[in-house]
Design a protein around this nucleic acid. Structure first.
Length: 926
RNA sequence: GGACGUGUAGCUCAGCGGGAGAGCACCUCGUUGACAUCGAGGGGGUCACAGGUUCAAUCCCUGUCACGUCCACCA
């Protein structure tokens, strides 16, 4: 004897228990059956500092739905999880913690101690998000969990760097970078966010050296004038023709700078003359190059004015300096105007401070070269985007790609495997000046030493070469005495996205030829957000193709952005964030997952409302109670039950509906049409199985025909199992729990639901005549219910139904299902016969049904109803007649469309005639 | 400036060449054992606007308007 199911499902106790059981059993790992086809996805590694937000919840739910589906299909399904070391983000977190705890800062602490602190932090807090993924039910293979700073992944990073350097695809260059004065590091173009802010154009007059006048320039960044080295005008600008080649005296600074002619100057803008600051503006840098101008860097790493500016400004922040400059221009009576404006200003996406273009040496990847095969792979369909249109975004960026600055002046990350040594001057001195340094790129220090040794030996240097801690140590000491030569390693680390770019193959063991790499690379599907197509997807494509010769994934499924119910982006500052963990606590994980799945349409953002989650929580409850109903009615699974052999129409019908649903859901899952997956399941389980099948089954389950009852019991149990199987990928917990609960009776279960086989049925499970027959019963009952409600017939009143004009089939259907029709329609009788007086008619197929509701009938209301129905048929008739009367339509439309319209016309006319007759009778009565 | 996307019921969205759909909300009715986290019924839309293609347009094309996002640029 088994315990009855509780009235509702209790996610709080069930979820942790089931997850632990799954994980412990090893069910998340891919099967080791060598014949199983591999299916792999790699997780977009969340930042190790992260905590699960709603976007993660969506992205990982979709991945889990996919991987659970493929696993059930018998694939060797691998979902490889891991986290990203997240350079800036993590360094930020730990620095903030140090500050809050009143500890010394990272610079006082020193690099090694600080990095050790970060590792310590990672060991304590780095697992947060990984455990939150478990709460989401994510069936990742945790035994393969990776971290971007793992030894294996770090080795992959070094190998990639060295090889690309050898190939000339990584190089060091001095050019303008986006400099973040808060973090004092370079950042890539992608990490720069343009924000619109209030600003102004300040119009400054620069006096001509010869005293013959002035030239006016405008700027939004007055402080940069400290670094001006020219004024440019357009070569065709008549106003300035005579001035080109003359010199102006830069106010405040006193420097003489030339007026140059350059097409960059736009005569339409401002005065047509533009100040040129090559060291602090990307466009000006190019102008400077063309005219051989000096690039004077006036900022230090903190964004303060440096020693290249007049003393009064030194040490002042750029914005303070801006004010000072404006004041001085005003005082000098050289301020020619202020024009308020709103304009886009670059900000650091992490720091939020204004980014400065700054001239430094950095490492770059030749992205243009790497992008070519990556573009081609998508053009050739080796990797496809879903929805397809995202490939446009990908192409757009890839075809205009710029060199990728990969060095970061941070401590947390992969340190760049480059060592520097001095140049040897002819007299044997070691020259450690910046421009003279020799670069040795190698995977290890020993290799770098060997490279350097060979390099210097070739120049006749025969002393020892060794690695020291810094350039300072190299310059100091007795090295210069000529006894030995010091190398020092690059201080910088790599952009975090450099290692993420290797993720699909580095996590599988590359560069070792591991069996995982062999089996699971290329991965099948990447599920990710569009916001990281550039950051991540593009880079994986470039790196994957370059280093493995194959695309890293066959399909990129782009999921939407989750917004709040008003459509606003969720952000902590707006206070509109929905914490998925709170929602899981409140509604259960399955409800949250189902909601995200159902809302995951293709081309738009998801506006999430709690009501929606509540609704899907109710859906879970509905399934739970359907199971409870089945249990109470002895619907126990039967060993060897063959759904193909059922005899009753009702059983055949639900078998067919189940098969139809399975086909729909399978197709939708294959296409990653997640909303269709959810909607198909919802409709089938609630509207078909619960609303109709179980209601239709009740009379049989309560009846005395034991054979019929047994078949329905077995069928019901079977359908429920199919529901659990199909719903499992989306709602893993409640389905697994029901699987377990229903295992207590009937034949033993093999194991977890999650490890079961995905359903697929023979085509003949769908029986056309059963479909038609139950469809007819459903229509009949619906008509009866509708009329009763409209006529305000009291729910308890049992009324007679007659069917006139019924054909043989309808008559026999009525006979076969009379009990059902009586109970579902709350009827007294249901027989063939003419409509009695005081009855209301409805049309069912070729027949006319009549409900004898004389006691409740409201003549006026009934007339109105009939008139309205007739009018609606009339509208149909008119529209279809117009079509059929059009010779072009008859000549050009497809035959089946014409036939369809003829049928439609006949049906509408017949229905109209029946209702018209009834209306006439009614009018006769009154 | 460029690209992409979106305008369908009060709300959120599906449909996308031949009869306007779902969920929620709303209204009416219903508590004697699956489920009130429920059941039955119902109202509600010139499918943004204007042209065009077609026998036929919510659906395809062009344009307009509105909204969103991304990229670039603005001395």
């Amino acid at each position: 004897d088994t315990a009855m199911l509780e009235k509702t499902f209790d996610p709080k106790t069930v979820e942790p228990r089931l997850y632990a059981a799954w994980e412990e059993s090893g069910a998340f790992a891919p099967t080791d059956n060598p014949n199983a086809e591999p299916f792999s996805i790699v997780i977009p590694p969340p930042n190790v500092t992260g905590s699960l937000h709603i976007g993660h919840a969506l992205n990982n739910t979709l991945q889990d739905v996919l991987i659970r589906f493929q696993r059930m299909r018998g694939k060797a399904a691998l979902w490889l999880p891991g986290t990203d070391h997240a350079g800036i983000a993590t360094q930020m977190v730990v620095e903030r913690q140090l500050a809050e705890a009143g500890n010394m800062g990272r610079r006082e602490m020193g690099r090694d101690a600080f990095v050790a602190k970060v590792w310590e932090w990672k060991a304590e807090s780095g697992g947060t998000i990984v455990n939150q993924l478990r709460r989401l039910g994510a069936s990742c293979d945790w035994s393969r969990e990776r971290f971007t700073l793992d030894p294996g992944l770090s080795a992959a990073v070094r190998k990639v760097f060295v090889q690309l350097h050898k190939e000339g695809l990584i190089y060091r260059d001095k050019r303008l970078v986006n400099w973040d004065p808060h973090f004092q590091t370079a950042i890539s173009d992608l990490e720069v966010e343009q924000k619109e802010v209030d600003g102004a154009y300040w119009h400054f007059a620069y006096p001509l050296e010869d005293g013959s006048g002035e030239i006016v320039v405008a700027t939004t960044r007055p402080e940069t004038m400290l670094g001006d080295t020219a004024v440019a005008v357009h070569p065709d600008d008549e106003r300035y023709k005579g001035l080109v080649g003359k010199m102006v005296r830069l106010p405040i600074v006193g420097r003489l700078i030339p007026i140059v002619a350059d097409e960059y100057a736009d005569p339409e803008k401002g005065s047509g003359a533009v100040k040129i600051t090559p060291a602090h503006d990307f466009n000006d840098f190019q102008v400077g190059k063309r005219h051989g101008l000096e690039a004077i860097n006036i900022l230090d790493a903190y964004g303060k004015i440096n020693e290249n500016a007049p003393e009064a400004f030194r040490g002042h922040d750029r914005f303070a300096a801006r004010k000072m400059i404006i004041e001085q221009f005003e005082a000098l009576e050289l301020l020619r105007g202020i024009e308020k404006t709103r304009h886009q200003v670059p900000h650091g996406d992490r720091s939020g401070v204004v980014i400065e273009p700054w001239l430094t040496d950095q490492w770059y990847v030749d992205a243009e070269t790497l992008a070519k095969p990556a573009i081609k792979a998508v053009e050739d369909g080796k990797t496809v985007f879903s929805p397809k249109n995202w490939d446009k975004t990908y192409f757009e960026w890839m075809r205009n790609i710029q060199p990728w600055c990969i060095s970061r002046q941070l401590w947390w990350g992969h340190r760049i495997p480059a060592w520097y040594g001095p140049a040897l001057s002819t007299d044997g001195d070691l020259d450690y000046s910046e421009s003279a340094l020799q670069i040795f790129v190698a995977e290890t220090e020993d290799e770098a030493l060997a490279l350097a040794g060979a390099h210097y030996a070739a120049q006749g240097y025969d002393k020892r070469v060794r690695v020291l801690g810094s350039i300072q140590e190299c310059r100091d000491g007795e090295l210069q005495a000529g006894n030995e030569l010091g190398l020092f390693r690059d201080e910088d680390v790599l952009d975090t996205w450099f290692s993420s770019g290797l993720w699909p193959f580095s996590t599988l063991g590359w560069p070792e030829k591991t069996s995982d790499l062999e089996r699971f690379y290329p991965t099948h599907t990447l599920v990710t957000g569009f916001d990281i197509i550039f950051f991540w997807v593009a880079r994986m494509m470039m790196m994957g193709i370059h280093f493995t010769g194959e695309v890293p994934f066959q399909r990129v499924v782009i999921n939407a952005l989750v917004r709040d119910q008003t459509g606003a982006k969720m952000s902590k500052s707006k206070g509109n964030v929905m914490d998925p963990l709170v929602l899981i606590d409140q509604y259960g994980c399955d409800a949250v997952r189902f909601t995200l799945t159902a809302m995951s349409g293709q081309a738009r953002d998801i506006k999430l409302s709690e009501q929606r989650i509540e609704g899907y929580r109710n859906f879970g409850t509905k399934l739970w109670n359907a199971t409870r109903f089945a249990q109470m009615n002895g619907c126990i699974r039967v060993e060897g039950f063959d759904p193909g052999a059922v005899t009753q129409t009702l059983a055949k019908w639900i078998r067919g509906e189940t098969a139809k649903t399975a086909a729909e859901v399978t197709a939708a899952l294959e296409a990653c049409a997640y909303d269709e997956v959810a909607n198909s399941l919802y409709r089938f389980i609630w509207n078909v199985f619960c609303d109709w099948y179980l209601e239709l089954a009740k009379p049989i389950l309560n009846g005395s025909d034991e054979a019929a009852k047994a078949e329905i019991q077995a069928t019901t149990a079977w359908v429920l199992d199919q529901c659990l199987l199909m719903l499992h990928p989306v709602m893993p917990f409640i389905t697994e729990e029901l699987w377990e609960k229903t295992a207590e009776e009937g034949p033993a279960r093999a194991g977890f639901l999650m490890s079961e086989q995905w359903p697929s049925y023979p085509a003949d499970y769908i029986d056309g005549s059963a479909q038609a027959e139950i469809g007819w019963v459903v229509d009949l009952v619906s008509e009866v219910r509708s009329l009763r409600a409209e006529m305000n017939v009291p729910p308890g009143a049992r009324i007679p139904l007659t069917l006139a004009g019924a054909g043989e089939e309808a008559a026999s259907r009525l006979d076969r299902h009379r009990d059902l029709i009586l109970s579902l329609g709350r009827l007294q009788s249901a027989d063939l016969g003419e409509a009695p007086a005081g009855s209301v008619p409805f049309v069912i197929g070729e027949a006319t049904g009549s409900l004898a509701v004389a006691d409740f009938i409201d003549l006026a209301a009934e007339k109105a109803r009939l008139t309205k129905e007739i009018a609606s048929h009339d509208a149909d008739i008119e529209r279809v007649n117009r079509k059929l009367g059009n010779p072009d339509f008859l000549a050009k439309a497809k035959e089946e469309v014409i036939e369809e319209n003829r049928t439609k016309l006949a049906d509408a006319e017949a229905a109209k005639a029946k209702l018209g007759a009834a209306l006439k009778r009614l009018e006769g009565v009154s």
